[in-house]
Amino acid sequence: MTPAWVLGQRALREAWRTPEALLPTLFIPLFFLVVNVGQAARIFPSKSTAFLHGQGYGAFQLPSSLLLAASFGSAALFLVEDIEGGYFDKLRATPIPRTAIVLGRLIAESVKGVLLATALVLLGLVFGITVASGVLGFVLLVCLAALWAVVFSGFMQLIALKTRSAAATNSAGLIFFPLLFLTPNFVPRNLLTRPMEIAATFNPVTYVMEALRSLILEDLVWSKILYGFGVAAVLGVVMLVLSVRLIRNYD
């Protein structure tokens, strides 16, 4: 674990020293939260909208912003920089397990994910959102958002390792946007049109979003929480296995 942790610390230093890459991951999700709530809050008044469980529409939208914040994947662009600049070869010339090179950045992503999710949820609390599942729910909320950050970063690293191109990696990141909108983003799944409901059911992001939402709006609903963590964990393992395979055969 030591080489992965050492590389993780390096990736965190890198993020800290590049605030221009870090700050948009906080402000853009906040921007979408404000805009979405501004556009739809009057359609869904908290008193008469059952799926809000007595909270404002901001509480319903917060999971989308958490997922968006966790899906920037800037770590993969730093990886492409390493590849293009030759530092990646420098790392490959050291006697560390190839997995450590992949895991290092993912460890850093998880730390960044925890900090970003905490900041977003705390901002939400300031504006009247409550986490209905309590302190444990808050911890689970932050952990699931951070786990998703790791999954998405793993996907982006995979693209970076395969293409070795910043442009291709950037474009691949845009895949998330259709996935984010093919979810019960504005209303619960049972209120979607049939085709959208089918699409959302097949979209893994839906289950992560529903788990996050349940933690904010309801008490600890373990069936939804475990589904969310399960989907993220399976995707995380798949990304990790593929990345490690790719880096082991990297020429």
Partner: peptide, 27 residues
């Protein structure tokens, strides 16, 4: 073996000392 390839492969965001310490840790 030690390796220094074409186009010095360095991480521009680290200091010289940090880079060498990291390299030592990886070894």
């Amino acid at each position: 073996m030690g390796v220094a390839l074409q186009e010095a492969g360095l991480d521009p965001r680290q200091t010289g000392r940090e880079l060498l310490v990291l390299q030592g840790r990886l070894f």
